[in-house]
Each structure stands twice: as structure tokens, then as C-alpha cells.
């Protein structure tokens, strides 16, 4: 793996997507400000905004850097550079993930911070927040996997929709798991076995999907 080449490809994608990236960072900061305004309405509104920005930037960047590379016929330009599928795939996943993680960590820290400064200290929410935040990461990695392996807009939109439905479904499901639901009301963090298992499963899923993406790309016979 040629790290210098991967870096150049990432910087290239960031430069080309600079409007989207800066826009989403600004929107993320605004959402934080809304959360900071305080009060339950501010917290909920800010959180919804932040989740929207997060899902939006994840999907938009994935489509623009992964699917459009083929659609706009710039793929043969990129692949004419001294790289193999490894550098290409790594640059796409890392480039997208880094931007995404910046916003994602903002969301995570923002929510945890809001919990911490909230007058009634609802620390019981932490496991739920962690599981849901990681779920958004899972959904986004699903988009990367589908976008990179199919390079097809239709399939990628399908993955975006699936990811969103999963987010809502899992949110509902997790909130109704008795052991987790019980803890949510409390003022201290309570990691039930169910919560730990779920969180671990999410991370395993992320590793599996990214691993599959590299494996699939390495077995691709026709890159153009």
C-alpha cells in the first residue's frame, strides 16, 4: 500500500468536495449551537439537525466520490495513476470516514455533553446514545460498501434508504429492550449485557463490511 498516494487521492476528493464538507461542518456547528441554547426543545431540535447533517454528509460524499467517479467517467483518469485497487479503495473509505467521523464525534460529544450539563443528569441514556450513534456509523459503512462495490447510483440510494429505515427500526427496537429501557430512566450509566452485545455486534458488522469491500475490490476483474 502506497500511503503517499492514498493521501493524495484523499486530499483530491476533499478538495473536489470542499463545498459539501465545509457546509456540513458549518451545519454541524450550528446544530451544536442549537443544543447549547439549552432546554429540552433545543436539545431535541439540535440533535435531529445533527443526525440529519450526519446522514446527509455521509450519503452525499459517498455518492459524489464513489459513484460519480464512474458516472462522470473520471474513473479511468484516476485508475491511470500509479495505483492499484488497494490505494483506490483505501482512499475512498478513509477519505469519507475521516470527514464523517469529524461530524460523528461532534454528534457523540455534543449529545454526551448535553447529557452531562442537563440539570437532571440523565446518564442512563448513554448506552442508548452509544448504540444509536454507532448504528449511524454502520449505516454509513453499508453505503460505502454498496457504493464502492457496485459503483451504481440506484443500488447506493437503496443502501441509503435501507440504512435510514434500519436506524429508525433499531432505535425503536433498542428502546423497547427491557434491560436497556429500564436503564434509560436512571441517573447512572448501566451497561446491560444486551446493550454491550448490541454495541459489539455493530462494531463487528463495520469490520466485516469494510473487510468485504476490500476483498470484493481485490477480486474485481474489470475496474473500468
Amino acid at each position: 500500500m502506497n500511503a503517499a498516494m492514498v493521501k493524495r487521492l484523499i486530499v483530491k476528493d476533499w478538495y473536489l468536495q470542499r463545498v459539501v464538507i465545509i457546509g456540513s461542518l458549518v451545519a454541524g456547528a450550528l446544530s451544536l449551537a442549537v443544543i447549547g441554547l439549552g432546554g429540552k426543545p433545543g436539545f431535541i431540535l439540535g440533535l435531529i439537525l445533527l443526525v440529519t447533517v450526519l446522514i446527509g454528509v455521509g450519503a452525499q460524499l459517498a455518492v459524489a466520490t464513489m459513484v460519480f467517479e464512474r458516472k462522470e467517467q473520471t474513473l479511468s483518469f484516476v485508475m491511470s495513476l500509479p495505483i492499484s485497487y488497494k490505494e483506490y479503495t483505501a482512499s475512498k473509505i478513509l477519505g469519507n470516514l475521516i470527514i464523517f467521523l469529524v461530524v460523528w464525534l461532534t454528534l457523540l460529544c455534543g449529545s454526551l455533553g448535553a447529557i452531562a450539563i442537563s440539570p437532571d443528569k440523565p446518564f442512563g441514556l448513554v448506552p442508548f446514545v452509544a448504540i444509536m450513534a454507532t448504528e449511524i456509523l454502520v449505516s454509513t459503512c453499508l453505503i460505502y460498501t454498496v457504493a464502492l462495490t457496485t459503483e451504481h447510483q440506484g443500488w447506493t440510494i437503496g443502501a441509503i434508504i435501507t440504512g435510514n429505515l434500519a436506524l429508525n427500526g433499531i432505535g425503536y427496537y433498542v428502546a423497547h429492550i427491557a434491560s436497556i429501557a429500564r436503564g434509560m430512566e436512571g441517573h447512572s450509566v448501566q451497561w446491560s449485557p444486551a446493550a454491550s452485545t448490541l454495541l459489539a455486534a455493530e462494531f463487528v458488522l463495520i469490520v466485516l463490511m469494510l473487510g468485504f469491500t476490500f476483498l470484493f475490490q481485490s477480486r474485481k476483474k474489470d475496474f473500468i
Binding site: N2, M5, S80, P82, S84
Partner: peptide, 18 residues
């Protein structure tokens, strides 16, 4: 291919720049 392409200039009809 990565090593070979360091010494190749490639242009194809269907290649687009950004």
C-alpha cells in the same frame, strides 16, 4: 500495475477530467 503506471501516460477517448 501501480509500478508500471508510474511510467505510463494514458489518455482514452472516454476519459474525463474533473
Amino acid at each position: 500495475q501501480a509500478a508500471a503506471k508510474l511510467d505510463i501516460g494514458f489518455v482514452s477517448e472516454d476519459m474525463r477530467l474533473y
